[in-house]
């Protein structure tokens, strides 16, 4: 009798799970997966979007191997990710911990302050920052020269442009990620900290042995999502530099976009996209492995 009930429960569980997943599976298949497969199909063709496709097998992939500009863009994407992901992670976690220690009243004020940049569209945020970054009389340079420093070129310099863009994207996203961290920190039972306090642990110690380990799930999530986002970063770069100056901010998606829509090499662009997808896929998988193994 009990066994039968358990079996029924089990069947019920499976059915419920499929039922819960169904809308998303259908939607993702139709609106993401199918277009993705289609992109792969296109990648086997020479297609300029305007005239019929010509099947050329894997020629696009062969061509890619010797496309220096493409591999340079991949390198730049890695560089961008290496700067952006750790910076976003550390800063949003740092401020989550800081804000969490504030009194409720100040906490909500500070939270709103950090979150507001998130409301502004990527295009507009790019516009505002171009104003701040202006090499002649932008706010930042006015500030620098009043402090006695040399003016910087920011977006106009091949060395500074990428970092300048990272700062803008950090500015937009810190608040949001901070809030996700704060939500997880709130889930940590208070008595853990009280116990640590009684043991005489310092704040840093408490963070390292309680907060940080217990945030593993959230950390994994934020790191993976941020990494994917930074591999597919596009809007702000398009508006602020469109890949310049002298290609110093031409990341992979931007190059793919140029191949597809500026040069109308849809087939080739799709092949690049497939490879970019594989790169991201492998990296995410490796990251997931790393975290689950440790845990």
């Amino acid at each position: 009798m009990k066994r039968m009930k358990k079996n029924r429960r089990k069947r019920n569980e499976v059915l419920t799970a499929y039922g819960f997943l169904l809308p998303n599976l259908v939607g993702l298949t139709v609106f993401v997966f199918f277009p993705m497969i289609y992109a792969f199909y296109v990648s086997l063709h020479d297609w300029n979007a305007l005239s019929p496709k010509v099947f050329i097998g894997f020629d696009n992939y062969v061509e890619m191997a010797s496309d220096k500009r493409w591999w340079a863009s991949v390198g730049r994407t890695f560089l961008f990710t290496l700067i952006y992901v750790p910076a976003l992670y550390c800063l949003s976690l740092f401020f989550a911990v800081i804000l969490n220690n504030l009194k409720q009243k100040y906490q909500s004020i500070a939270r709103t302050m950090f979150l507001l940049p998130f409301a502004i569209t990527s295009v507009i945020s790019a516009v505002i920052w171009m104003f701040l970054y202006d090499p002649r009389n932008g706010v930042l340079n006015q500030l620098l020269s009043s402090l006695g420093f040399d003016k910087l070129e920011f977006l106009g310099s091949t060395n500074q442009a990428l970092v300048s863009i990272v700062v803008v994207i950090l500015w937009i996203n810190i608040g949001y990620n901070m809030i996700i961290f704060m939500a997880s920190i709130k889930e940590i039972p208070k008595d853990y900290y009280e116990a640590a306090k009684i043991d005489g642990a310092s704040a840093w110690r408490a963070f390292r042995s309680i907060t940080f380990p217990l945030l593993r799930g959230t950390s994994t999530f934020i790191l993976i999502v941020t990494m994917i986002a930074s591999f597919t970063v596009f809007d702000q770069i398009m508006v602020m530099t469109s890949g310049g100056p002298a290609s110093s901010t031409e990341v992979s998606v931007l190059y793919i976009y140029k191949q597809a829509f500026e040069f109308l090499n849809m087939g080739y662009a799709s092949a690049l996209a497939v490879i970019l997808f594989l790169i991201i896929f492998i990296l995410s998988l490796a990251q997931l492995r790393l975290y689950t193994k440790k845990g």
């Binding site: 993401v32 993705m36 993976i224 994917i228 596009f234 998606v253 597809a260 662009a269």
Partner: peptide, 15 residues
């Protein structure tokens, strides 16, 4: 499901 996150929008725009 996670793999669908990794597709840049500009790539699947046409399909």
């Amino acid at each position: 499901i996670i793999s669908t996150l990794m597709v840049p929008f500009s790539v699947i725009m046409i399909p």
